[in-house]
C-alpha cells in the first residue's frame, strides 16, 4: 500500500494539475495578504474559499484520476498486490498530494508575511487542517462514485452533483426547513443537520473561532455547549474522520467485488 501510495503521489506531484492547484493557492495567499496585509481578514476570505474549493477540487480530481489511471490500475491488479491496497494507496496518494498543494501553497505566503507574529496562527492552522480533511473526504466520495459508475460522463456528472449537494443544495434545504418550522425549537435540529454535512461541520468549526460573538450570542445555549467545549471540538474532528473512514471502507468493500 505504501508503495502504491508513493507512486501515485509521485505521479500526481508531477502532474500539471497539481502545479496549477498549488500555484493557485500560492497566488491566492500572496494576493490576499498583499491586498490588505491583515492576516485576520485574509483568514476569513480563505475560509470562504477553502470550504467551497477543496471539496470541489477533491471530487473532480478524485474521479478524474480514477478514470485516467484505469489501465494502470489493471496493470497493478495483475501484480501480486492486495486489491484494497491498490485503491487505498491511490486514494491516499491523491488526497495527500491535494492536501500538500493546499498546505504548502498557502503556508508559504502566510509564513512570508509573518504569520508566527500573528494571533491568527491557530485559526490559520485549523483552517489548513480542515481543508486537508475536506480533501480526504471528497476524494473518498469521488472514488466511490467512480467505482460504482464505469461511465466516465455519469461519474463526472454525479461527482459535480455530489459537490453541489453538500456545498449548496443541502444548506438551501436546511434553511428552508428552518424557516418553515420556525415555530418549533430548532437548535437541536440545526445542530444535527450541521453534523451530517462535512462542509457545514467544517465551516462551523472555523467560524466558531472567527465569528464567535455572532454565533454564541444568538443561538442560545445548545451551540455554545456543544461547539464551545473541547468535547465539541473533539467530537467534530471524530465526525470528520468518520466522513473519511466510512467512504474509505466502502471503497475497500466495493473494490473487492469490482471487475476491470
Amino acid at each position: 500500500m505504501i508503495k502504491i501510495l508513493k507512486y501515485s503521489f509521485y505521479d500526481l506531484m508531477r502532474s500539471r494539475w497539481s502545479y496549477i492547484y498549488f500555484l493557485f493557492y500560492l497566488a491566492l495567499g500572496f494576493i490576499l495578504l498583499f491586498l490588505n496585509q491583515d492576516v485576520s481578514k485574509a483568514v476569513i476570505t480563505l475560509l470562504n474559499i477553502i470550504i467551497v474549493l477543496t471539496p470541489l477540487i477533491g471530487t473532480l480530481f478524485g474521479v478524474m484520476y480514477f478514470y485516467n489511471s484505469k489501465e494502470f490500475t489493471e496493470l497493478l491488479l495483475a501484480q501480486p498486490i492486495k486489491r484494497s491496497n491498490i485503491f487505498v494507496g491511490q486514494y491516499l496518494g491523491i488526497s495527500l498530494s491535494l492536501s500538500l498543494s493546499l498546505v504548502v501553497g498557502l503556508g508559504i505566503p502566510f509564513l512570508a508575511y509573518g504569520l508566527f507574529q500573528s494571533a491568527e496562527i491557530f485559526n490559520f492552522f485549523s483552517l489548513l487542517l480542515i481543508g486537508a480533511m475536506l480533501s480526504f473526504i471528497f476524494v473518498a466520495l469521488a472514488f466511490n462514485l467512480a467505482l460504482y459508475f464505469d461511465d466516465k460522463i455519469k461519474g463526472f456528472g454525479l461527482a459535480i452533483i455530489t459537490w453541489l449537494f453538500f456545498a449548496v443544495i443541502y444548506d438551501g434545504l436546511f434553511l428552508i426547513t428552518m424557516l418553515m418550522f420556525d415555530d418549533y425549537p430548532l437548535d437541536k435540529f440545526a445542530l444535527g443537520a450541521t453534523i451530517f454535512n462535512p462542509i457545514d461541520l467544517s465551516r462551523i468549526l472555523i467560524i466558531l473561532k472567527l465569528d464567535i460573538s455572532a454565533l454564541l450570542g444568538y443561538t442560545g445555549a445548545v451551540f455554545q455547549d456543544f461547539f464551545g467545549t473541547s468535547f465539541g471540538l473533539f467530537f467534530s474532528l471524530v465526525l470528520l474522520s468518520l466522513w473519511i473512514i466510512l467512504p474509505l471502507l466502502l471503497i475497500v468493500v466495493k473494490s473487492k467485488r469490482k471487475d476491470f
Binding site: 444548506d171 436546511f174 467560524i207 455572532a214 444568538y218
Partner: peptide, 10 residues
C-alpha cells in the same frame, strides 16, 4: 437558529 448557516455558500 439560521445563524448556523453563516458564511455558507448558499
Amino acid at each position: 437558529e439560521t445563524i448556523i448557516l453563516l458564511r455558507s455558500l448558499f
